[in-house]
Amino acid sequence: MAQRSSVEKLPTDVRHELERKLADNGFGNYTELADWLKSQGYEISRSAVHRYGSKVQKRFASIKASTEAARLIAEGASDESDTRSEAVIAMLQTEVFDALIAIGELSNNELDEVARLDLMGKVSKNIAPLMTASTRLKQFQNKLKADMDKAFEKLEAQSKQGTLDEHTLKRIRTEVYGLIG
């Protein structure tokens, strides 16, 4: 297994302060940050700080993107057909897929075969409920659409019999039935 970076070995409070400084500096000024660490009594190279900063920056970007996507979903998606749940499941599936690719791209120095297999096993075990949720959501949507189709067929029959006027049928088609797509 690969050795932990010198930055990851720092005490938690120092590492968190470094992460705050990284964010405050826009993930730049690595020489200044290495000097700050030296003043704190830790001899860590500029390149080690840069490697760690790159990882933190990617994590921050991922969190920011997920947060923004969740906000947009919550603001923009009415939830009549469970659009938010579908979007959240899609986001999770994307993240799991990206994680699997990242695990596969790790070199043997970074992660030995046993550790890689262990990670894959954990991902597989944890993805099962996600797949079940996705399948159930699709089943729910299909059943809802089928139920709506049946109800609309009855309304069309009433319209042909003259017990429902064409204007009301049109409103139902656009305002209610349109929610299912």
Rank of each mutant, 00 (worst) to 15 (best):
V56T: 08
L144I: 00
R84C: 14
K143S: 08
A115E: 13
D149L: 11
L72P: 02
V88E: 01
A146E: 12
R4N: 07
F140A: 13
L169F: 07
K154E: 10
G121F: 01
V176D: 07
V176K: 05
L37T: 10
R59K: 12
V96P: 00
K64V: 03
L137P: 03
Q3M: 08
E75K: 14
E110L: 05
V123N: 05
K138E: 15
S6G: 05
I172R: 09
D149C: 10
Y30R: 04
A69G: 06
A23D: 08
Y52S: 03
A69N: 14
L33D: 03
M91H: 02
Q161P: 00
W36M: 13
E175D: 15
K125E: 08
L144S: 02
L155K: 10
S85A: 11
L137A: 07
F152M: 14
N126Q: 06
L106C: 14
A102W: 00
R59E: 02
A74F: 02
D112H: 08
S66E: 06
G121C: 02
T174H: 02
V114R: 11
V176M: 09
D98M: 14
Q158H: 07
K122F: 04
L179F: 03
D118A: 12
S6R: 15
K9I: 12
G26S: 06
L33M: 08
Y42R: 08
A128S: 12
R59M: 08
G162N: 06
E19R: 07
S45V: 06
A151F: 06
A87W: 03
L130R: 01
L18S: 09
R51L: 10
D13Q: 11
E166G: 01
V88S: 09
S5K: 12
G41A: 11
Q3D: 06
D13L: 10
V7C: 15
A77V: 02
D82W: 09
E95A: 15
A102R: 12
Y177C: 01
M148R: 03
L37M: 13
L72S: 15
A69H: 13
S6P: 00
G76D: 02
D147T: 04
I172K: 08
M91D: 11
N126I: 03
R46W: 00
L72G: 15
N29C: 09
G178H: 01
T132C: 06
G76W: 03
I44E: 02
R51V: 00
R4T: 11
G104E: 04
E19W: 01
P129C: 05
F152I: 07
L106S: 09
L137T: 06
T174F: 02
Y177S: 05
G41H: 07
V49E: 05
A115H: 12
G53M: 09
R173Q: 14
S6Q: 14
L179W: 03
R84N: 06
K122V: 02
D82F: 13
F60D: 04
M148L: 06
V123T: 07
A133Y: 01
N25Y: 10
A74Q: 10
T67P: 00
M131S: 12
Q161N: 12
E95M: 11
S134W: 01
E95K: 13
N29W: 06
D118T: 09
L164I: 13
R84M: 15
I73Q: 10
E95R: 14
R116S: 05
V88I: 13
